[in-house]
Design a protein around this nucleic acid. Structure first.
Length: 474
DNA sequence: GCATGATCATGC
DNA sequence: GCATGATCATGC
């Protein structure tokens, strides 16, 4: 990184040096702003919000910028202050990590190395603090502070994600962008409300304002890695091939977190022009036409589990008995689909149980079901042949088109309202053709859960209609 | 044949 | 012990 000016003597760190900035930041570890600045800060700080700006101005003593350069331009470091919350299993991200807003009018003009995202966010200084509801923000304790570069294998996926987002802009479809379009780097809505829009260059249709973002599952990975491993800051030079036009040839063996294993062991596993999704489909193709029996024999799988096809799928991807790292980090939802001889789907697709006492306090875009739906699906499709034998037909990645979320929101709102009103008998049915519906999901009809009105009610869940799934995969 | 309610095998 | 992902069973 080129030095633009001499070190500013007034600052308690060398603003041209990423390690110096990091070292200064780390003095906040296990401390709050209150600890550093004393009681005076509590008086000037009554409300919440803009906590990140406070850290920048007060602690780093510089004015935050929202321009195209990183926060510390001379060092190429972008500061991100982001909350975690504590659950039984440890720390988890409280929300997405949101980067710069996507300027549809400009972003498409760049290649990835020149993109607004990469220019600003290639090197991050992450400051994770523990969010606690009852606390003032100045009392939040910082728990993880570190420089972060994306591992090379992740950067490959992020670059492809960026290309997908830009391809939609170029196609005049910025209004159809959705978080489910991409794996790690998402385009999440950002604005006062969902009506906040921006113009796009190749269509008259206003598009929702969106920002680049990382999904909580990916941030979890950063947190876990930061807490369990000795710190490794990837050398910038390892990116060189990836940031050229052309194909990556970098050989980079990935480290494993305990229970997850990547499909892609080295970036050179990719064939020319392949995305991660392409690669996965390629791995499955040799097994198209295999029967259930052939697959379980081939991979020596002996289980009666109803998710045995998922076990098969993992085996095909070379990730036996572990979780698929890329699917975990991208929060991909694997679902098996069984087609009848005539191609119709036998069953609707179930989701998690509805927590009756939670849903009544949720908003749609933060609801459990929305999070389940607003992601990439991986369908493993089996079809019965003329003799009624189930064979692997094909696999595909899919996500719910942006336009369909309005109807799903209706279904969700209707359900929430009925639960709040104590009506457990008139949920939206599959026959109403609203894409989704509500049906039982329990051990048996005695399996019940406490509802807001104090009664015990049969456990239920949301389902996606099989007709909808059928259309999606056709 | 399909909608709906009911239930199962497993992992954690 | 229970949620998950999935499938079964009945009745119209």
């Amino acid at each position: 990184m080129k030095k633009l000016s001499n070190t500013n003597m007034e600052l308690p760190y060398d603003k041209t040096n990423a390690r110096s900035i990091e070292a200064y930041a780390k003095q906040l570890l296990d401390k709050s702003l209150h600890d550093i600045f004393g009681d005076d800060i509590v008086h000037v700080r009554k409300g919440k919000g803009k906590f990140g700006q406070l850290v920048e101005e007060l602690y780093f003593k510089y004015k935050p910028n929202s321009d195209a350069l990183p926060d510390f331009p001379e060092a190429g470091v972008e500061l991100k202050t982001t909350p975690m919350k504590e659950i039984k299993k440890g720390y988890v991200p409280k929300e997405r990590l949101v980067f710069n807003i996507i300027d549809y009018e400009k972003e498409y003009q760049y290649s990835f190395p020149q993109s607004s995202f990469w220019k600003k966010n290639a090197l991050l200084l992450l400051m994770f603090y523990l969010y606690e509801e009852q606390k003032l923000d100045v009392d939040y304790i910082f728990k993880i502070i570190r420089l972060w570069r994306f591992p090379v294998a992740d950067l490959k996926i992020i670059k492809d994600d960026w290309e997908k987002i830009v391809a939609k802009i170029k196609d005049g479809k910025a209004h159809e962008l959705s978080e489910g379009d991409t794996l790690y780097l998402g385009a999440c809505t950002k604005g006062a409300n969902s009506e906040t829009t921006r113009s796009q260059p190749f269509s008259e249709v206003p598009a929702k304002q969106r920002a680049f973002s990382l999904k909580p599952k990916y941030i979890s990975f950063i947190i876990n890695k930061s807490l369990t491993e000795a710190e490794v800051l990837i050398d910038e030079r390892e990116y060189e091939d990836l940031l050229q036009v052309g194909e990556p040839s970098v050989s980079y063996i990935r480290k494993k977190l305990d229970n997850i294993e990547p499909v892609v062991k080295e970036v050179s596993d990719y064939k020319k022009g392949e995305t991660f999704e392409d690669l996965v489909v390629r791995k499955f193709k040799p097994y198209y036409g295999y029967t259930e029996k052939q697959l379980t024999q081939e991979f020596q799988i002996d289980t009666k589990a109803k998710n045995k096809f998922e076990i098969v799928a993992k085996a095909i991807l070379g990730v036996k008995n572990k979780k698929i790292e890329e699917f975990e980090k991208a929060d991909v939802l694997m679902k098996t689909i069984r087609l009848e001889e005539n191609g119709s789907i036998r069953e609707h697709m179930s989701f998690r149980q509805i927590q009756f006492n939670d849903i009544v306090n949720e908003d749609w875009e933060e609801s459990t079901w929305y999070w389940e739906l607003n992601r990439k699906f991986f369908f493993v499709v089996f079809q019965k042949d003329a003799n009624g034998i189930l064979k692997l037909d094909r696999v595909l990645f899919w996500n719910i088109p942006e336009k369909d979320f309005d109807i799903l929101e209706e279904v969700w709102n209707d359900t929430k309202m009925k639960i709040a009103n104590g009506d457990f008998t008139h949920f939206i049915k599959a026959s109403e053709n609203k894409i989704g519906h509500v049906r039982p999901k329990g051990r048996n009809s005695d399996d019940k859960m406490l509802a807001p009105n104090g009664t015990m009610q049969k456990k239920k869940c949301f389902w996606l209609n099989k007709t909808y799934i059928k259309a999606a995969i056709s």
